Amino acid sequence: MLTALLSGFTTGAGLIIAIGSQNAFVLRQGLMRHHIGAVVAITSLSDILLISCGVAGIGILVEAWPSLVQYLRWGGAAFLAFYGLQAAQRAWSGSGALHAAQQTSSASLKTVVLTCLAFTFLNPHVYLDTMVLLGSLSANYPGFGQIAFAIGACCASLVWFIALGYGARLLRPVFNSPLAWRILDASIAVFMLTLSALMLS
């Protein structure tokens, strides 16, 4: 049981901690301290839901219906391109630093929630990682071991998003500089637009 739990935790952490569009979004919200509780809750609970579905065997449906992943790829690429262009505009104008300094933002809770859900569920890799890969690996631990593996993977997601979202404030002194925000937004823009292009390739 302990082996399965640790295996689930380390495997889940390896997949979740990898730099991705969702992590970049959580980091930026954490730096702004803007609706971070909702963002952390959505990202963590979404991962827990998908991991649980994968262990329950629903990942087989994703493998059997490849067109679903294709549709998600197109939608995800369009969304990432849109968000990347927004980040590029913030980097060019320096508007991101203004919002951070005032600890305010024009984005409502509804907008932040919908954006977070889009980053989570329009990414086809999240289904392959959580439902297919983790679901398949959990089969190596039959019985309660499979449940322990899933719990370990879910705990990794919870720990990571809490640390990323609420730990981002430790970087606030660095981001007191408008230049730092422009560099961050420029990096996010390049990252999002590159991911969008890769999804379509």
Rank of each mutant, 00 (worst) to 15 (best):
L109F: 12
L109Q: 12
L109S: 12
L109K: 13
K110Y: 09
K110R: 14
V112M: 07
V112T: 13
V113C: 08
V113R: 02
L114K: 12
L114V: 13
T115I: 10
T115P: 06
C116G: 13
C116P: 09
C116Q: 13
L117Q: 10
L117T: 07
A118S: 15
A118C: 14
A118P: 08
A118K: 11
A118W: 03
F119K: 06
F119H: 12
F119S: 02
T120Y: 05
T120A: 15
T120G: 05
F121M: 06
F121A: 00
F121Q: 01
F121Y: 13
L122C: 05
L122H: 07
L122P: 02
N123H: 05
P124A: 00
P124R: 12
P124E: 02
H125Q: 15
V126T: 13
V126I: 15
V126H: 06
Y127P: 01
L128M: 13
L128Q: 03
D129C: 06
D129R: 04
D129V: 07
D129Q: 11
D129G: 03
D129P: 04
T130L: 13
T130K: 09
T130Q: 13
T130G: 00
M131L: 05
M131A: 03
V132L: 11
V132K: 10
V132S: 08
V132R: 09
V132W: 09
V132G: 04
L133I: 08
L133Y: 09
L134V: 04
L134H: 08
L134Y: 05
L134S: 04
L134E: 02
G135K: 11
G135R: 05
G135T: 08
S136K: 15
L137H: 11
S138V: 09
A139P: 08
A139W: 07
A139E: 14
N140I: 05
N140Y: 09
N140G: 08
Y141T: 03
Y141E: 01
P142A: 12
P142N: 07
G143L: 01
G143F: 07
G143A: 00
F144D: 14
F144R: 14
G145C: 03
G145T: 06
Q146Y: 06
Q146C: 05
Q146P: 01
I147W: 09
I147A: 12
A150K: 01
I151D: 00
I151W: 00
I151M: 07
I151K: 05
G152N: 04
G152L: 03
G152P: 04
G152F: 01
A153N: 06
A153V: 01
A153Q: 02
A153R: 04
C154G: 10
C154K: 07
C155Q: 10
C155I: 15
C155V: 15
A156K: 07
